Amino acid sequence: MLWATLALLARGAAGLPPFELTALGFGIAAVLGLAVVALRGRLRALRQPPLAWLHGVGGLFGYHALYFAALALAPAVEANLLNYLWPLLIVLLSAPLLGLRLGPRRLLGVALGLLGCALLLLDKGAGAAAGPDAPLGFACAAAAALVWALYSVLARRLAAVPTEAVAGFCASAAILAALAHLGFERSVAPTAGQWLAVLLLGLGPVGAAFFLWDVGMKRGDPRLLGTLAYAVPVASTLLLILAGEGAFGASVGIATLLVAGGGMLAATARDGGG
């Protein structure tokens, strides 16, 4: 539910350079997260090995820098949906990286979810006309999907790292983004509307969502979570359309049915029989 608002809020902050937006969003998430961790007396949870920091900071910073760049360069609806290849990649990578069995029922659920996203992506009326920077934007969206899938699946191998450490990862991601912004971008003073969007990003899809996702990937079934995550691009696309960022079409309704059906198949799959 939180990630369904990510694209809409990112569009609400449109005009801010990608690294600046990443730094501001993660800065807010870090301040709030570290405050909660400190109040719980868990600051020692930030003491993690270098591999954990490389995984956490690289995943959070890399994904969002690529995602915000994609939305800035390419039509919002199409870039957003291409980014949502990550649920498919999570399910597929669970087999080689975690040794988890997929099975025909779960694979069928993944295929239905992917088909729903593909219908939306191929709907020419879904988004605005593509500009000359669109190919680079689409490439950033695809790269973002791969980065987030790897981050999510590999989190299972780092299950001993407490979720409180995510607050430190957010702080480091904010610092890296700020340095990249100062080195490669021109600063833009946010308007009141942009500040509101940034605040909501830091509270929700760039804040609380990561702590919840960390718990889910470490304690839940990544195959099921990856399949159910196909509900996010549908909800996200609907929000973009309602906000005037795209046009409603029959493909959205069909995609919703495909995603819901795929999620039900995956949810009822058994490890023994697929």
Rank of each mutant, 00 (worst) to 15 (best):
A160Y: 05
A160W: 06
A160M: 01
V161N: 08
V161F: 10
V161W: 06
P162W: 09
P162Q: 10
P162T: 14
P162H: 11
P162R: 12
T163Y: 07
T163D: 15
T163R: 12
E164D: 15
E164H: 13
E164L: 04
E164F: 06
A165F: 08
A165G: 08
A165I: 01
A165T: 03
V166C: 01
V166K: 02
V166Y: 01
A167H: 01
A167N: 02
A167M: 03
A167K: 01
G168S: 06
G168P: 09
G168T: 04
G168A: 04
G168R: 04
G168F: 09
F169E: 07
F169S: 06
F169C: 03
C170A: 15
C170M: 15
C170N: 14
C170Q: 15
C170S: 13
A171W: 08
A171E: 08
A171D: 08
A171R: 06
A171L: 12
S172H: 11
S172F: 12
S172W: 12
S172I: 03
S172Q: 12
S172N: 09
A173N: 02
A173G: 03
A173H: 02
A173Y: 04
A173V: 01
A174K: 04
A174M: 03
A174L: 03
A174F: 03
A174N: 04
I175R: 00
I175N: 00
I175M: 00
I175A: 09
I175F: 03
I175S: 01
I175Q: 00
L176T: 08
L176D: 07
L176A: 15
A177Q: 02
A177Y: 00
A178F: 06
A178N: 04
A178G: 06
L179H: 04
L179N: 08
A180T: 05
A180K: 07
A180S: 13
H181L: 05
H181G: 14
L182K: 07
L182D: 04
G183L: 13
G183P: 07
G183I: 11
G183H: 10
F184C: 13
F184R: 15
F184P: 08
F184M: 14
E185W: 06
E185T: 07
E185L: 08
E185R: 12
E185G: 11
E185C: 08
R186S: 14
R186H: 12
R186L: 11
R186F: 02
S187T: 11
S187M: 14
V188T: 13
V188Y: 02
V188D: 05
V188I: 11
V188A: 12
V188L: 05
A189T: 15
A189Q: 14
